Simulated scan of single mutants.
Amino acid sequence: MKRIYFSSFSAIFLLSVFLSGCNQSTSSEKSGESEGKKLTVGVTMLSMQNEFIVNVSDEIEKKAKELGVELITVDAERSALKQIEQVESFIAQKVDVIIMNPCEVEASSPAVTKALAAKIPIINVNSETTAKPSAFIGSDDVESGRIAMKFIAEKLGGKGNVVMMHGYMGQAAQIKREQGAREVLKQYPNLKLLAHQTGEWDRAKGMALMENWIQSYGADINAVFAQNDEMGMGAVKALTDAGLKNKVIVVSIDAIPDALQAVQKGTLDATVFQNAEQQGAKSIETAVKIAKGEAFDKEILIPFQLVTKDNLAKFMK
């Protein structure tokens, strides 16, 4: 009886060891598969017709390659409705994280809400929404408006007429850059805002708007604040064609290569540097941290910097 009992016990013990080994092997294989799986990030950008936005997108792509992240990048073409649909598509594709460069503060907010409801982290890059995302990577646009208008105020000695070109109305950058500019204008009662209108971040529209203002106000214009370089370059072209550029100060924001060259030539008086490289890189780095369950910063603000001929060399590549 003892012999039979021992044999049965041995058989059961060997079987359990065998099964345990199989389970460990299966578990190990699954773990390996999970570790080997590439993270997939869906990216929706405001407009790939805008040079600064393209620069941010390029940096996202560059950093994604370094980190082994698979990207699905789409262009919202300035449509908040299209952007929401793109986020819905990312949700259906079950991406790990979504990066959104919002078209509008309010109208793009449902995209954030939908992503979070689907338990997919969403990061806003460069621009904001009313709905709070998992993280925000960008800069304080109020600061950039203050920097630009302060430069104008000092150059004009606190007295003169300014026109302001708005970006795409309803977008965070447009709202906040105007806010910053108006804060400075309040400090200079003799600095008048002669006119303000949207150029929709576009060079051709900025040029056309400047041509209209030249016809309406002519030599009364002392300075132009364009909320981005594309519109600023359009304003420079219109003023140059009208023979007025040497009498009018033009300041814009972003420090894209064209603007830096214009500052070097003296046709653009100043631009405000916004760091596309850091915005793009940090958005992907944050996406990876979130996907891996690591600690991450919920807000990263990258400072703006005034660029003039005096410090131009620092920003030229």
Rank of each mutant, 00 (worst) to 15 (best):
I249D: 11
K159C: 07
T130K: 13
G157I: 02
L46R: 13
K265C: 00
C103F: 12
L268G: 10
V250L: 04
E85R: 13
A226R: 02
K314A: 03
G68I: 01
T286R: 03
A259T: 12
T73P: 02
T286V: 04
C22P: 00
L301I: 14
V112S: 03
Y168K: 13
V87Y: 07
Q274D: 03
A270I: 04
A238H: 04
Q171E: 15
S8G: 13
N275H: 08
K159W: 07
G234K: 05
S139E: 13
W213K: 10
E211Y: 01
A287G: 05
V125P: 02
M210R: 09
L15W: 05
D310W: 09
S134D: 09
N126Q: 11
E51V: 14
D140M: 02
S79N: 07
I4P: 00
E143V: 07
A287Y: 01
V272G: 01
V251L: 02
S27H: 09
M316P: 06
R78D: 14
N124R: 08
F136A: 04
S109T: 05
S25D: 14
Y217Q: 10
K176N: 15
M231W: 12
E294R: 07
S89E: 09
S20G: 15
N126L: 08
W201V: 09
E61F: 06
Y188P: 10
I221P: 07
N212S: 15
V184S: 05
K292W: 07
E33M: 13
F273N: 08
K317M: 12
I152R: 06
E88Q: 04
K63W: 03
A226K: 00
A255Y: 06
Q227K: 05
G36Y: 10
T130P: 00
S252M: 01
S79F: 01
I120L: 03
S31N: 15
L14T: 09
G138W: 02
S109I: 10
G243Q: 07
E230D: 15
A223K: 05
V97S: 06
E106W: 06
I84T: 13
I221A: 01
R203W: 03
E35G: 01
Q49W: 00
K114W: 06
G32P: 00
S109K: 01
M1H: 15
N212K: 12
Q93F: 02
Q86Y: 06
I122V: 06
K119S: 11
V105N: 13
S252Y: 05
L312I: 00
T308L: 04
Q187M: 14
L260I: 07
K205P: 11
S20H: 08
D141S: 03
A107H: 12
A148M: 00
T240V: 01
F225M: 12
T286K: 00
V184A: 10
V184W: 02
P102L: 10
T44S: 11
Q227D: 01
I98Y: 03
I256R: 11
G206Q: 03
A259P: 02
Q305L: 00
L14N: 06
I290Q: 07
L312C: 08
K245E: 10
N311P: 03
A153H: 11
S7A: 15
F18S: 12
Q215E: 15
I214D: 02
A115N: 04
I99N: 11
G218E: 08
A219T: 14
K114D: 08
G170T: 00
L239Y: 02
